[in-house]
Design a protein around this nucleic acid. Structure first.
Lengths: 218, 218
DNA sequence: GTCTATAATTAGATAGAC
DNA sequence: GTCTATCTAATTATAGAC
């Protein structure tokens, strides 16, 4: 089914190319600015400027800076899910170590490609706020529970390193993502986080440390 | 040699009790605010209020908000050095795995006691800035080099996990500190980062993962 | 939908009385 | 040294022409 030019859609299905594109560019620019400078440090002027738009367009396309922030998080988390799904695809779901290893690899690869998500979460996690409460209850809680369940199952099978569940989540995310979240700092230290092969090595090392008795088949 | 009351010191050696105390409280309050909200999110009014002082006192005691921030970092880094020195004290310096393990334990213990340092560093590491350049060249560079040298030596002795030097620093710091840096997030997930015994277990787990063949004597 | 102009608030820093 | 009052600049959000 093709939509013809002389019969433009109306109402709920209506699509305005120019508008959707600007909205999209604003979200993309916002997520970069929020990641680099935090919520308070990211001015709506800087966001609009990065998107090639004017500052008042933000409040035309979004209810507030807060709503824009939430849309940034949902875009990034959606992309994370895609990358993890790609890594898990084709693996036997009953092979729990292999699935867990694929999730960890997905986390490392995503953190290197899209450091913005981990940057924003590290900014927001340092103090209670309405944004943090929204983020945890809508997006983080189930992910945390899911990873914990998998870890306990692997622990029961003696496949897991001796790591308490309560530290697993943050240790894994910290070990997987700080290098990329703080890439500007790393570069000043002479490290190039995205150099070829380094990301895969990083992921392999982390998997090997978490699942000492697991050896992936090549 | 005792300074008598009727001969108050003057010039460079002069000490004003009230002043030094206010200055001290302002630094302590600032470091908490910078850690919670980032440099931009921490207003000088909020800092002064937390210290029980008025906002203009900040510019009386410090040249600028930037200088106050640098003094916060130097206080925190000084405290980190003390905690690491305490953990390394009494260990045979030629026992490289034991020294490395003690440093890691010191990092975990300090991150749990004083999460402000890692919070601030995670805020600042997400974008280039004069603050970040100052921090890296004055305080982070030598620490990074020192840890890397120790890791290479342990790798040569086959005591280290198969982890590239270039990822070691951030993986260790991320694994050691994210739980405490993002404690407000962890608490919303139902985790109490500072519960008794958990910090020591965290440190032991991390050491065991990094130095698989090292077994500490109890 | 996009633009200019601006309202309303808050920021860091300063002046001057005490 | 500490306080009140205030300056200048920057912030988010809105009004209204086009």
């Amino acid at each position: 089914m093709v939509r013809t030019a002389d019969a433009p859609a109306s109402g709920r299905g209506r699509v305005n190319r120019g508008t959707e594109e600007t909205r999209d560019r604003l979200i993309e620019a916002a997520l970069v600015e929020f990641a680099a400078n935090g919520f308070d440090g990211a001015s709506t002027r800087a966001i609009a400027s990065r998107a090639g738009a004017h500052q008042p367009q933000i409040n035309y396309h979004f209810e507030s800076k807060d709503e824009l922030w939430r849309l940034c998080l949902e875009r990034l988390l959606g992309e994370l899910d895609v990358v993890i799904a790609e890594h898990v695809a084709g693996i036997d779901p009953t092979d729990e170590p292999a699935v867990f290893a694929a999730i960890i690899r997905g986390l490392v690869v995503f953190a290197s490609r899209r450091p913005e998500l981990n940057r924003i979460m590290m900014h927001e996690g340092t103090a209670p706020s309405d944004r943090l409460t929204w983020l945890v209850s809508n997006h983080l809680e189930w992910r945390h529970r899911d990873l914990g369940r998998r870890w306990i199952s692997l622990t029961d099978q003696a496949m897991a390193a001796p790591l308490p569940v309560d530290v697993l989540y943050h240790m894994v995310i910290g070990a997987a993502s700080l290098l990329y979240a703080n890439a500007p700092e790393a570069r000043l230290l002479g490290i190039e986080p995205d150099s070829s092969g380094a990301v895969a090595d990083h992921a392999d090392s982390l998997v090997a440390m978490l699942l000492p008795s697991y050896r992936p088949q090549h």
